[in-house]
């Protein structure tokens, strides 16, 4: 099974919650400000729904070779 890396730019993140809510695998949690944090990378299937829907270009999903 392929593995993915997920990163969030917490400086540009505006805590809108879209990625947290749209992710089908609950990869993200939120910090005390409501900003997205990656809590379980292993669950990521690489669908990139988070990256495509992040209004602030904070998320990058990459394939781990």
């Amino acid at each position: 099974m392929k593995k993915y890396s997920v990163s969030v730019n917490e400086i540009h993140c505006k805590a809108c919650g879209i990625c947290i809510g749209l992710c089908p695998k609950e990869v993200f949690g939120e910090d005390y400000l409501g900003k997205a944090v990656v809590q379980d990378t292993d669950k990521c299937t690489g669908c990139k729904i988070c990256e495509l829907h992040c209004p602030d270009y904070c998320i990058e999903v990459g394939e781990v070779s």
């Binding site: 809108c16 990256e51 209004p55 602030d56 270009y57």
Partner: peptide, 30 residues
């Protein structure tokens, strides 16, 4: 940051002024 953003965005102008969760950012990345 994704290569596409690096290439087509003026990254020094970000973050943009749009409100949290505004759809404009999504349209612009599309």
């Amino acid at each position: 940051m994704d290569r596409i953003y690096e290439k087509y965005f003026r990254t020094d102008r970000l973050p943009h002024i749009w409100c949290p969760g505004c759809g404009n950012g999504i349209v612009l990345s599309a």
